[in-house]
Design a binder for these strands. Structure first.
Length: 270
DNA sequence: CCCACGACCTGTGGGC
DNA sequence: TGCCCACAGGTCGTGG
């Protein structure tokens, strides 16, 4: 979509999680996408008209790309999964003849158009923490952000103001790798474990990206490829199974924190 | 300010 | 086999 001009845009219902903004279709039709990027869990398409199309997949959102130039060569798109017309909510067609469709059975995703020059002040972006794979996410930043916080480290890592982009699965996985209990008060973790945590977060994300993400039910890349990282979960959804850490005889526990499942080994995570 | 909880919406998987 | 309930990857608003 980078560099593509949108010649037809269709919103097949008035809303996803939130209503589409006023003039959504008109403001997109005829616009060119100058830059396609990501911040935290938001996909950003910067348009040549001063607006940015902001898209969030929620939990079940998915894009499919159909192209005029169908190809089986690596790196080119050849989506061939069965269509799911009931949940095809937004369709973008480019001048070059590609169609990009947003599907979202649960409609937890959302889209908005916001002024590009005011994005930093927009509530979705103003308070976001650093990118977990960037230099600004480090033990010093974490120590500062968590100082005095009595909330559990698990819940704090899900807070996008502390670090932007971790979700429920990867937080459980990172804490296990760092051997830190998800139940610990965030402000009481010493510098050395915080450093280990930063490295664990980076390692989990890097491996997950390398494996094409995690497919639980309906996740797929825009080319239709399924992710494989779910086979490498060490704790997530492994309740009652033995802890896989070498030398650890613990059993994976499941608990609930802030309404979300947490998986951990209460033997090696302290 | 901090925190817990429910809401949003639909599909699926497990238990009976 | 079929039904019902609990639960699901994320955020946001409310109320204590």
């Amino acid at each position: 979509m980078r560099g593509a001009r949108l010649i037809r845009v269709e919103a097949r219902r008035p809303d996803l999680r939130f209503p589409f903004p006023d003039g959504f279709v008109q403001r997109l039709t005829g616009a060119r996408i100058d830059v396609l990027e990501r911040r935290a869990k938001y996909l950003l398409a910067r348009l040549d008209r001063g607006d940015t199309l902001v898209m969030h997949l929620g939990m079940t959102g998915r894009f499919e790309i159909e192209g005029a130039e169908v190809s089986r060569r690596p790196g080119e798109f050849h989506y061939a999964a069965p269509a799911d017309p009931k949940h095809a909510h937004v369709v973008f067609e480019t001048e070059a003849g590609h169609r990009v469709t947003y599907f979202d059975p649960r409609r937890f995703g959302y889209m908005d158009l916001i002024a590009t020059d005011g994005m930093a002040r927009h509530p979705w972006f103003a308070a976001l923490g650093p990118e977990p794979l960037g230099e600004d996410f480090n033990a010093t930043h974490l120590a500062k952000a968590l100082a005095g916080r009595r909330q559990s480290i698990k819940v704090m890592l899900l807070d996008q103001r502390i670090v932007a982009g971790l979700g429920n699965i990867y937080v459980s996985e990172a804490l296990h790798r760092a051997r830190i209990s998800p139940l610990l008060a965030a402000g009481e973790i010493r510098p050395a474990p915080l450093k280990a945590l930063v490295e664990a977060v980076r390692a989990v994300l890097a491996e997950a990206i390398e494996a094409g993400g995690s497919t639980l039910r309906d996740y797929a890349g825009a080319d239709g490829a399924l992710g494989y990282f779910q086979h490498r979960f060490r704790v997530y959804d492994h309740e009652d199974e033995p802890c896989g850490r070498a030398g650890c005889r613990g059993v994976i526990q499941r608990t609930v924190q802030a309404g979300r499942s947490t998986f951990y080994c209460d033997t090696c995570q302290r």
